[in-house]
Design a protein around this nucleic acid. Structure first.
Lengths: 158, 158
DNA sequence: ACCAGATTGTTTATGCTTAAACTATTCAAT
DNA sequence: ATTGAATAGTTTAAGCATAAACAATCTGGT
């Protein structure tokens, strides 16, 4: 019994799909959060921020992090503060703009992230182990349409 | 193949799928939260709790709510407290067990929920408007496999 | 009847998240 | 050069989420 239990039989299929999508995401996300906590004493948002930085060796500005992580700016401030305190990330002045920072992984941060990322990949592969390579591609494609549509809807709303 | 090479080359498609799944869920969820806030001055967890109760006219015990909403018990206590204060929900004694409550929608709560649910359904139908009925069924089926596998994994871990 | 263990719900401490208000700085139009 | 608007980042207050500790109650074996 879970979120899906609430769907009425007369509801359109879209509602059922939404509840199932939500359930799947929450199940996998809880799994990842638990593993990050028990194995690395860290959280998903911290991992996510480091993950963004790992792809940008020169660092990212706060607002760029905010956009990529899909969270508000105040949030990025707090998580960055913690990671700076832990020595995993550093704030560097942006020359020519005294308002902004470049946030970058430290050597220690990069090393730790790589260890976590290896495990993380295993958890994710496990999460989709019920699907064949072909089914994974199919799912990816279908969700691509949903994502595309959702993005364009957001643009319209502005 | 050494550890480092393995980290990013063996199963990149599962990772990409996970990130896309997460993105889609977050986009739709943010949309729903914004609409609930602007149109009904409420939140997704409150809506979710009322949604569970709407299907159970005799009410649900706190732990049943917790399980169906996939959140911890302390959380249900807080959200129920709020809804009780607002007169949308009521706590009723369970005869024969003085530890437990039955939580039930009030008449006002039921009325408000029905108004919200109608709108909610429209938002969700819109969110998947890029997909045909056949594609919705396909997506539903694929996610069913993921959910099934994830549930059985959780059972194993106990 | 008793008691150990399980169950039900709440409280507490901590962390993530948001929206909105705020400071500091930059940019652009005059 | 001045000034008004935009941008970058932070702070604040409120809500949601968890895990862990806790109190109250129920259950079953003796």
């Amino acid at each position: 019994m879970d979120l899906e239990a609430r769907a009425h039989s007369e509801h359109p299929e879209a509602l059922r799909l939404w509840l199932r999508l939500l359930t799947c995401t929450q199940l996998i996300e809880k799994q990842v959060r638990n593993e990050l906590r028990s194995q690395f004493s860290t959280t998903l948002p911290r991992f996510d921020l480091m993950s963004q930085l790992e792809r940008s060796p020169d660092g990212l500005k706060m607002n760029e992090l905010s956009r990529r992580m899909m969270v508000t700016g105040g949030n990025v401030t707090g998580i960055t503060d913690q990671l700076v305190t832990e020595g995993l990330v550093e704030r560097i002045n942006v020359e020519g703009d005294r308002r902004a920072w470049r946030v970058r992984l430290t050597a220690r941060g990069r090393k730790l992230f790589n260890e976590m990322a290896q495990q993380h990949e295993d958890w994710i592969v496990d999460a989709f182990a019920a699907l064949s390579a072909k089914e994974i591609a199919q799912l990816h494609k279908l969700l691509g349409k949903v994502k595309q549509h959702s993005h364009s809807q957001m643009a319209e709303a502005e």
